[in-house]
């Protein structure tokens, strides 16, 4: 994939200037400009992701549905959603359905970033023409309201311990666990979604969702917290390589 200039795309990272200043090379994913890698060797960036890496996935499709009847409607659409709130459920295509509340589902696309699931759901959802309307929830657009970062590597729980009050160590915060809490004094959603490699090696990985208007602030805080552990920004390529 050839490098592109992020400013040439209408859909680009909200913090693309910070990423570019760190040496990011951008590529097109689903019509948007995403930081794919940071110029060094592929192996070195993968090693960073296994130690402590931060990636910006905000351009990848994310959204959701909420309201009475949401879970029933999504289940009818083929999603697998369990009964517990504050748990994220992995879907067949690698997407995550995060149950933030009994009737609120936040959907994160897989790192392929095609947006196929969200497109299908948004196309399928229709407000019934006349009352009485069935309780089926309603779309919850989050693409442009929430920044989406991913923190990967063995040192992520220690990094978060500096800026977040919730214990994110792996033995206390299971795969799929959700913490809706305060990160660097901002309200944020953290979801644990480990990246298992084909050789059985599992890299701890956490999605971070927070208000888009403060994306630069949060990214800077995370980078500052990560510096102590030699954490660096990584691109989408390294995140995909974690599962190779």
């Amino acid at each position: 994939m050839n490098a592109i200039a992020p400013a040439s795309h209408l859909r680009r990272s909200f913090i693309y200037r910070l990423l570019a200043a760190s040496g990011a090379e951008f590529g097109e994913v689903n019509g948007g400009a995403v930081a794919l890698h940071y110029g060094g060797s592929r192996e070195a960036e993968l090693a960073t992701a296994r130690r402590l890496g931060l990636a910006d996935l905000s351009v990848l499709p994310h959204g959701g549905f909420k309201g009475k009847g949401t879970v029933e409607w999504l289940t009818a659409q083929g999603l697998a959603i369990g009964p517990d709130s504050n748990v994220a459920y992995k879907q067949a295509g690698g997407e995550w359905a995060a149950r933030l509340a009994p009737t609120e589902i936040f959907l994160l696309d897989s790192l392929a970033g095609t947006g196929a699931l969200l497109q299908r759901l948004n196309a399928a959802w229709q407000w019934a023409a006349a009352a009485p309307r069935p309780a089926q929830g309603y779309p919850m657009p989050r693409q442009d309201s929430h920044a989406w970062f991913m923190a990967t590597g063995a040192f992520v729980p220690e990094m978060f311990a500096k800026i977040c009050g919730v214990d994110l160590r792996r033995e206390h915060f299971a795969e799929g666990a959700i913490a809706q809490t305060s990160v660097a004094k901002m309200s944020a959603i953290i979801i644990r979604a480990d990246r298992p490699a084909k050789d059985g090696r599992v890299t701890p990985a956490y999605h971070v969702l927070a208000d888009i208007a403060s994306a630069e602030y949060l990214w800077t805080c995370l980078m500052d917290a990560a510096a102590e552990f030699d954490g660096k920004p990584v691109g989408l390529r390294a995140l995909r390589d974690l599962e190779a």
Binding site: S85, N86, A101, G165, V166, A179, Q180, T181, S182, K185
Partner: peptide, 17 residues
């Protein structure tokens, strides 16, 4: 920091409330 127990989210720092 003082801890409050949220019925939905469990024990959290009081600054989150």
């Amino acid at each position: 920091m003082k801890i409050m127990n949220c019925p939905l989210n469990g024990p959290r720092n009081i600054s989150e409330f």
